[in-house]
Deep mutational scan, measured.
Amino acid sequence: GKRLNIQLKKGTEGLGFSITSRDVTIGGSAPIYVKNILPRGAAIQDGRLKAGDRLIEVNGVDLVGKSQEEVVSLLRSTKMEGTVSLLVFRQED
């Protein structure tokens, strides 16, 4: 696979993607993946982020050990017109 650095500018329609966690172990944390890209928002305008990408970092914060809720609040904490920096891991087909 490969790592991608993606910067998304948060506009009025938001970042435009949803996340999910897979393989949750009890008391553990699961990897966070991009669930889908919404028809409006920064992600589809940028065009690089894809469903199935694994989020590794948000704005330089390592997501290991973070819950899905914590990751959502990290993403939401970005101000309007601010930039969210994502490091994602993509499995090659």
Results as ranks from 00 to 15, higher is better:
residue 65 G to Y: 06
residue 60 G to L: 01
residue 9 K to A: 08
residue 89 F to H: 14
residue 63 L to D: 01
residue 68 Q to R: 11
residue 90 R to V: 01
residue 20 T to V: 05
residue 4 L to M: 15
residue 80 M to R: 11
residue 90 R to P: 03
residue 69 E to N: 07
residue 71 V to I: 08
residue 31 P to C: 09
residue 53 D to N: 01
residue 15 L to P: 02
residue 82 G to I: 04
residue 11 G to D: 06
residue 81 E to S: 11
residue 60 G to T: 03
residue 17 F to L: 03
residue 79 K to E: 14
residue 45 Q to Y: 06
residue 18 S to A: 06
residue 29 S to N: 11
residue 33 Y to A: 05
residue 16 G to D: 04
residue 79 K to C: 08
residue 47 G to N: 04
residue 1 G to E: 08
residue 26 I to S: 14
residue 60 G to Y: 03
residue 73 S to G: 14
residue 92 E to L: 08
residue 1 G to K: 13
residue 89 F to T: 13
residue 74 L to Y: 05
residue 11 G to M: 08
residue 31 P to H: 12
residue 20 T to Y: 06
residue 53 D to C: 00
residue 64 V to Q: 11
residue 37 I to C: 02
residue 50 K to V: 06
residue 86 L to H: 00
residue 37 I to S: 00
residue 54 R to A: 08
residue 76 R to F: 12
residue 78 T to G: 10
residue 46 D to P: 01
residue 46 D to S: 04
residue 79 K to R: 12
residue 59 N to Q: 05
residue 30 A to L: 10
residue 68 Q to G: 07
residue 13 E to S: 07
residue 43 A to L: 00
residue 66 K to F: 13
residue 67 S to I: 04
residue 2 K to Y: 08
residue 40 R to M: 04
residue 71 V to H: 01
residue 54 R to F: 05
residue 6 I to M: 04
residue 11 G to S: 11
residue 47 G to Y: 00
residue 30 A to S: 10
residue 44 I to G: 12
residue 83 T to W: 09
residue 93 D to R: 09
residue 55 L to K: 03
residue 77 S to K: 09
residue 39 P to T: 11
residue 18 S to N: 10
residue 59 N to S: 04
residue 2 K to D: 07
residue 86 L to G: 02
residue 51 A to V: 10
residue 83 T to L: 12
residue 62 D to E: 03
residue 43 A to I: 00
residue 90 R to D: 03
residue 72 V to I: 15
residue 91 Q to T: 13
residue 69 E to I: 07
residue 42 A to S: 08
residue 15 L to N: 00
residue 52 G to E: 03
residue 89 F to I: 11
residue 39 P to V: 08
residue 83 T to Q: 09
residue 60 G to E: 04
residue 75 L to G: 02
residue 67 S to R: 12
residue 18 S to Y: 04
residue 85 S to H: 10
residue 47 G to H: 03
residue 59 N to M: 03
residue 80 M to S: 14
residue 42 A to M: 03
residue 21 S to F: 09
residue 12 T to E: 15
residue 78 T to Q: 10
residue 71 V to F: 04
residue 5 N to F: 14
residue 91 Q to N: 15
residue 39 P to W: 07
residue 69 E to V: 08
residue 4 L to F: 15
residue 66 K to A: 11
residue 80 M to H: 15
residue 86 L to W: 00
residue 15 L to M: 05
residue 39 P to Y: 05
residue 77 S to D: 11
residue 65 G to P: 02
residue 54 R to N: 08
residue 7 Q to D: 15
residue 24 V to C: 12
residue 15 L to I: 09
residue 2 K to M: 12
residue 61 V to D: 06
residue 48 R to F: 03
residue 42 A to E: 03
residue 82 G to Y: 05
residue 57 E to D: 06
residue 31 P to E: 07
residue 4 L to D: 03
residue 13 E to W: 07
residue 48 R to P: 01
residue 41 G to F: 00
residue 48 R to V: 04
residue 76 R to K: 15
residue 65 G to N: 10
residue 86 L to R: 00
residue 15 L to V: 04
residue 51 A to D: 10
residue 52 G to C: 00
residue 80 M to E: 15
residue 47 G to F: 02
residue 46 D to N: 03
residue 19 I to Q: 00
residue 66 K to I: 05
residue 55 L to Q: 00
residue 3 R to I: 15
residue 65 G to A: 06
residue 78 T to V: 13
residue 63 L to M: 13
residue 61 V to A: 06
residue 16 G to V: 04
residue 9 K to G: 03
residue 36 N to P: 00
residue 73 S to Y: 09
residue 25 T to A: 13
residue 35 K to G: 15
residue 42 A to Q: 03
residue 79 K to V: 09
residue 49 L to W: 00
residue 4 L to N: 01
residue 21 S to K: 08
residue 56 I to L: 13
residue 19 I to D: 01
residue 62 D to L: 07
residue 8 L to Y: 03
residue 6 I to Q: 03
residue 42 A to I: 03
residue 88 V to P: 02
residue 89 F to W: 12
residue 88 V to G: 01
residue 35 K to L: 10
residue 39 P to M: 07
residue 31 P to Q: 10
residue 8 L to F: 11
residue 5 N to K: 11
residue 73 S to M: 11
residue 56 I to W: 07
residue 62 D to C: 13
residue 38 L to S: 14
residue 32 I to E: 05
residue 29 S to Q: 11
residue 91 Q to Y: 08
residue 40 R to Q: 11
residue 30 A to I: 06
residue 91 Q to R: 11
residue 55 L to M: 05
residue 37 I to W: 00
residue 12 T to A: 13
residue 79 K to H: 15
residue 85 S to D: 10
residue 9 K to T: 13
residue 60 G to S: 10
residue 23 D to K: 06
residue 20 T to P: 01
residue 51 A to H: 05
residue 84 V to T: 09
residue 54 R to E: 15
residue 45 Q to T: 12
residue 65 G to K: 08
residue 29 S to W: 15
residue 93 D to Q: 15
residue 11 G to L: 10
residue 53 D to T: 01
residue 62 D to R: 10
residue 62 D to T: 07
residue 72 V to G: 10
residue 82 G to M: 12
residue 56 I to A: 05
residue 35 K to R: 10
residue 69 E to L: 09
residue 1 G to T: 11
residue 9 K to I: 13
residue 7 Q to Y: 14
residue 52 G to W: 07
residue 42 A to R: 03
residue 31 P to S: 13
residue 92 E to D: 15
residue 63 L to I: 09
residue 44 I to M: 12
residue 59 N to H: 03
residue 64 V to L: 13
residue 3 R to Q: 08
residue 6 I to A: 00
residue 40 R to K: 06
residue 41 G to S: 02
residue 6 I to N: 03
residue 29 S to A: 14
residue 74 L to M: 12
residue 62 D to Q: 09
residue 53 D to L: 01
residue 3 R to V: 13
residue 14 G to H: 04
residue 26 I to Y: 10
residue 83 T to A: 11
residue 65 G to I: 02
residue 62 D to K: 14
residue 38 L to P: 02
residue 21 S to A: 05
residue 20 T to C: 15
residue 69 E to P: 07
residue 28 G to F: 10
residue 25 T to P: 13
residue 15 L to T: 02
residue 75 L to P: 01
residue 55 L to S: 02
residue 86 L to M: 05
residue 69 E to D: 12
residue 9 K to H: 13
residue 42 A to D: 04
residue 72 V to P: 02
residue 67 S to D: 12
residue 80 M to T: 12
residue 30 A to V: 08
residue 92 E to S: 11
residue 72 V to K: 12
residue 92 E to Y: 06
residue 64 V to I: 12
residue 87 L to V: 11
residue 7 Q to K: 05
residue 67 S to C: 09
residue 33 Y to I: 12
residue 51 A to L: 05
residue 22 R to V: 10
residue 59 N to C: 04
residue 28 G to K: 03
residue 70 E to M: 08
residue 91 Q to W: 06
residue 78 T to A: 15
residue 77 S to L: 06
residue 23 D to H: 09
residue 25 T to N: 09
residue 18 S to I: 10
residue 85 S to Y: 08
residue 80 M to D: 14
residue 91 Q to I: 10
residue 86 L to I: 09
residue 49 L to S: 00
residue 67 S to F: 04
residue 46 D to W: 05
residue 55 L to C: 03
residue 72 V to R: 12
residue 79 K to M: 13
residue 64 V to S: 14
residue 83 T to G: 05
residue 61 V to N: 05
residue 14 G to E: 05
residue 69 E to S: 09
residue 42 A to V: 04
residue 21 S to C: 15
residue 84 V to A: 06
residue 75 L to Q: 01
residue 45 Q to S: 14
residue 78 T to P: 14
residue 78 T to Y: 09
residue 41 G to V: 01
residue 4 L to S: 03
residue 20 T to H: 09
residue 8 L to Q: 00
residue 47 G to E: 05
residue 5 N to Q: 15
residue 58 V to A: 14
residue 13 E to P: 04
residue 52 G to N: 07
residue 22 R to W: 07
residue 2 K to C: 15
residue 35 K to S: 12
residue 12 T to F: 09
residue 19 I to K: 00
residue 40 R to P: 00
residue 93 D to Y: 07
residue 44 I to D: 07
residue 24 V to S: 14
residue 52 G to H: 05
residue 65 G to Q: 05
residue 48 R to M: 04
residue 87 L to R: 09
residue 61 V to F: 06
residue 47 G to V: 02
residue 32 I to N: 04
residue 63 L to E: 01
residue 36 N to G: 10
residue 62 D to S: 12
residue 28 G to P: 15
residue 23 D to Q: 12
residue 84 V to D: 03
residue 41 G to W: 05
residue 66 K to H: 10
residue 19 I to S: 01
residue 46 D to F: 02
residue 8 L to E: 01
residue 45 Q to H: 13
